[in-house]
Amino acid sequence: MEALYVFCVGILTFSGIFLCLRGRTFPVVLGLTLLSYAVNLFLFSSGRLRLDGAAILGTSESYTDPLPQALVLTAIVIGFAMIAFVVILAMRARADLGNDFVDGREPPDADQAIKPTRGKV
């Protein structure tokens, strides 16, 4: 079980990091999302894996470790805020700069088709 778990965490980390190293905003956002899954699972597992531990007092003899759970719970919510911020930043960058590159180069013909103009419904 433990080996399977860390294998999944490893795969998630690998996928997340690879996507974070891409040159456009959207893959980076996808990568960050995958990476935050990996991080959350990693943190969560620091309380060790319990299959049938109780989370509620009085329901069982053996309990899971509640502390990592509480930390990860807020991490999930904050992670959402972070991803939202990055996504909006990416959109704003595209709106202001006219492209969605993050590799620092000025692209030769970046999205010439879509000029940043005021949209209409």
């Binding site: 860390v6 965490v9 490893g10 060790r48």
Partner: peptide, 13 residues
Amino acid sequence: CGGVIATINYAII
């Protein structure tokens, strides 16, 4: 990176 993270995680749990 994935390998290192998995190893650390394995070592912990």
